[in-house]
Every structure is written in C-alpha cells, then in structure tokens.
Simulated scan of single mutants.
Amino acid sequence: MADQPHPRPLSVWAVAQQHPRRQRADRYIPASSAHPAKMLPALARHIIATFTRPGDTILDPMCGIGTSCVEAAHLGRHAVGVEYEHRWAGIARRNAALAARRGAAGTIHIITGDARRLPALAPPHLHGAVHLILTSPPYGKATHGTVDADRSRGVHKRDFRYGHGDGNLGHRRLDELLTGFTDILTGATGLLHPDGLVAVTVRPYRHNGELIDLPGAILAVAHHAGLVRADRAVALLAGIRGGNLIPRTTFFALHNVRVARTTGVPLHVVAHEDVLLLRRRTLGTDPGGRAS
C-alpha cells in the first residue's frame, strides 16, 4: 500500500496469543465483559500501530465499550467513538477515563448516537481529518454471549443482546444490517483524510446451518459507499504454540459444530476474522481497487 508508515505487514496476524480476558486486564473496567461483541485489543492495537502514526485521528463509528479508542490513546493517537447504546457509551467513557489515569498520551471522545447519521454527529473538525476508521459490524446473538452452568439452573445464556430496543443493527435482519452499515460507511468516508484508510474486522458465521459470507457482503456494500479494497488480512482467533493452534472459541461456536457433526455435517470452528482494508475510490480506479 502506498504511503503507509511501516513496511507491508504479514497477511496473517497472530493477535490471540493471549486470552482475551488477559488482553483486557487492567485497561478495561469489569463491566466491559458484558458486551456481547468485543474487539480483541491486540487486533485493534496491531491495526492502529501498522497504519497510523502518533498524533493521527482514529474513528470507530460502532465503538461498543471503546476498545479501539482505548488502544489508540495508549498508542498516542486521538480517538473518537460513536455508540448507539447508552449503556455501552457510558462504559466506553469510563474506559477512556481509565486510559487517561493509566497515562495514555492520546485523547478519547465518545459520542452517543446513531452512526447512520455520522456526518451530523461528527464535530466539524473531523471532516476530512480522520486517518483511520476502524470498526466491526454486529453479528447478533447467534455467535455472542456468555454461558453459565450450574446444577440447580442448568445451562443458560446471558449478555447476548446489544440493547433492549430494535433500533440497534445487531437486532436486525441481514439485509437491514447491510443497508445500515452502508449508510455508516458512506458517512464515514466523508470524514476520511485524503490518505485515510478504513479497516473493518468481520468474520463469516452460520445461521440455521447456512454459512453467511459477511466479509464478502461488506466488500459489496463498501463499493456502494465509495470505497475500494486496498488490502485484506486474516486475524487469527486462536493462539499459536509450538506450531499448534490453541482454540479461543466460544461455547456457541463449539456447540454448533458438535451438533452439526452429530448429523454428519463435517463443520469446523471459524478461527479467524477477515480484516478488510479499504480506501476511497478515486478517478481511474475500478471497483476492485486496480488502476484502470
């Protein structure tokens, strides 16, 4: 990629060498654990360190508990996060305050609002000034949450909803999610610095046994938002020890695979996230990102 601050990175990133709980220790308040879809801090850190410089501005239009913002601040970048749910926005602000107490050199500003209205929500000074937009679309309750099990209550699921209303994109059908995410990317693109980059972390998932190619769908809607693919990488969701993969998967992913295998379907657990790297489309560039 042209004009990037560091040498071209490897296409496979080992960002789960530490367990997610260990990655969040001491940098995030305990209430953060209730969010159903937290970005790995090591993944956010790797993207930010690779594609931006100290003093740059980072934006996450669906920031949740503020992982991307916290990691950006600790790397000396300035971060703005937008979060639809008041609960998570409040926790993101508390995580931002903790980062400041821990000596983070960068600043964090959290906005509560609907990122589909991003141009109206964003402060004027951000327009054309964001060096990296880093975010991840919601996946919904099929892949997230926490399982508790005890002898008296059995197995039950908790912390799998982003909120209690239907307005959150995480509660909508796939077509509605993609329409909303197109609106978000379109608004975010207008805030990009001329040399800015959009990074979307996203994984395929299964719904009623069908594999949903969400990364492919996101690439398609990115085109409608005026973006082209600049690069693509894989972030491992498993650790590597002595040449072997150490699973970090959820109860739900394991359960779905076990159920499928009992019916004779040879499924495997998804052990990676795609990292889609996008730039604004310019004259002379075709939808695939190639010079015409």
Rank of each mutant, 00 (worst) to 15 (best):
Pro9Arg: 12
Leu10Ile: 14
Arg22Pro: 06
Arg24Cys: 10
Lys38Phe: 01
Leu40Gln: 07
Ala42Leu: 02
Ala44Leu: 08
Ile47Cys: 15
Ile47Met: 13
Gly55Tyr: 07
Gly76Thr: 01
His78Thr: 06
Val80Phe: 13
Gly81Arg: 03
Glu83Asp: 05
Gly90Asp: 12
Ala97Met: 01
Arg101Met: 11
Arg102Trp: 01
His109Asn: 03
His109Ala: 08
Ile111Lys: 01
Gly113Asp: 02
Ala122Ser: 09
Ser136Trp: 11
Pro138Gln: 04
Lys141Leu: 07
His144Ala: 13
Val147Ser: 03
Asp150Leu: 05
His171Tyr: 00
Leu174Ile: 13
Glu176Met: 06
Glu176Lys: 06
Thr186His: 11
Leu197Phe: 08
Val200Lys: 01
Thr201Ile: 14
Pro204Val: 04
Tyr205Lys: 00
Asp213Phe: 08
Ala217Trp: 13
Ala220Asp: 14
Val221Trp: 10
Ala222Arg: 02
His223Arg: 15
Ala225Leu: 04
Leu227Phe: 08
Val228Asp: 09
Ala230Pro: 00
Thr250Trp: 01
Thr250Gln: 07
Val265Gly: 10
His268Val: 11
His268Asp: 14
Val270Pro: 00
Asp274Lys: 09
Val275Trp: 10
Arg279Asn: 06
Thr282Tyr: 07
Thr285His: 05
Thr285Cys: 07
Gly289Tyr: 08
